[in-house]
């Protein structure tokens, strides 16, 4: 069976959930091989084996000071050696850039933002994308080269299956071009202790309707163990960091539950949350377009509704 390469998405060896999702998808297409780049290999190896990686390509180079070019070169080197049936990466901004460069290097077709990937039964892949702010479902396939597919988080339920995780060390030297764009300084963001927005099972977001006071949104999010998101209006007003923006120019999220509080539901906001499984809104305007999307909506003042809901959730959990 042909190998399917999965680029491991990790932070110093701590696997992101997307990696286990990609390994699960890879198993539908062939034999999963993980490609691990960077430091923390020993911490990651066990997790990769637990989700079915038969092989693990290991590239130890420290590439942390550079953007994605070296990673794309390393992945291309592995692809040249493995002749895989497909290459899967996470559809994050960074993952998409790696995929873009890889596709050009391999002369291969690229599909991004896939929400499902299946074998087409003829040795190729069939992908599903949700496009035009969630109004169409598109199925597509790669017709030239090795399919390179960027898969959105939450597109598969990770299945634990033991894999051999046989280690293959790949020697790698980044090119001069790969080192041409450098990260000269980095200011770490404050940690919130909440789940990562794109991976969270529940997201509670606040908009202009918060009037700048996110405390009720945060308290409700915490009662549910949720991540906190924001509309662009809230971000532009300086009420919440841009890294929490949900929408076309922010994060695209697809959680089990999305709760929009004081958000009208503009098309650009929908583009980032419309594929959520269950959608709930609290808005004092019953005409707000967000109500067209919801499974459950409360027409009311979020400053009254959210605290009551927070207490009720706490009581139910106690």
């Amino acid at each position: 069976m042909a190998e399917v390469l999965v680029l491991v998405d990790h932070v110093d060896g701590a696997l992101r959930k997307t990696t286990t999702e990609l390994l699960t998808i890879a198993r539908r297409l062939g034999e999963p091989s993980a490609v691990f780049i960077g430091s923390g290999f020993d911490a990651a190896k066990e997790g990769l084996a637990a989700y079915g990686a038969e092989k693990v390509y290991r590239i130890d180079a420290d590439l942390s000071g550079f953007l994605v070019v070296p990673q794309a070169e390393a992945l291309a080197a592995v692809a040249a050696q493995a002749s895989p049936a497909a290459v899967l990466v996470a559809s994050s901004p960074e993952g998409k850039e790696i995929a873009a460069r890889l596709a050009v290097k391999l002369g291969s077709g690229l599909i991004t933002d896939a929400v499902d990937v299946q074998s087409d039964g003829a040795g190729g892949v069939s992908t599903t994308q949700t496009v035009f702010a969630g109004s169409y479902t598109v199925k597509a396939t790669v017709t030239k080269g090795t399919p390179v597919i960027a898969v959105k988080p939450n597109s598969a339920a990770p299945e634990a299956v033991a894999g051999a995780a046989a280690e293959v060390t790949v020697p790698f030297e980044p090119s001069a071009l790969a080192q041409s764009a450098k990260i000269v300084s980095a200011k770490p963001k404050e940690k919130t202790g909440r789940p990562e927005l794109t991976e969270a099972a529940i997201v509670v977001s606040g908009g202009r309707g918060t009037g700048g006071d996110f405390s009720k949104v945060e308290a409700f999010a915490d009662s549910l163990g949720a991540a906190v998101g924001a509309s662009r209006a809230a971000v532009d007003a300086g009420w919440y960091p841009h890294s929490h923006q949900v929408g076309q120019t922010g994060k695209q999220v697809s959680p089990q539950l999305y709760v929009a509080c004081g958000i009208s539901g503009a098309i650009q906001h929908r583009a980032g949350m419309q594929t959520s499984k269950t959608i709930v809104a609290v808005n004092k305007d019953e005409e707000a377009p967000i109500f067209e999307l919801v499974d459950f909506g409360v027409v009311g003042d979020l400053f009254a509704v959210l605290p009551q809901a927070t207490d009720a959730v706490a009581a139910a959990k106690a």
Binding site: V305, Q308, A309, A312, A316
Partner: peptide
């Protein structure tokens, strides 16, 4: 979906749905 007007019990109804 179901849309309810808050009449002092909107939060409780929301929690009920969840």
């Amino acid at each position: 979906g179901t849309i309810v007007k808050d009449e002092g019990d909107g939060g409780a109804k929301l929690a009920g749905f969840l």
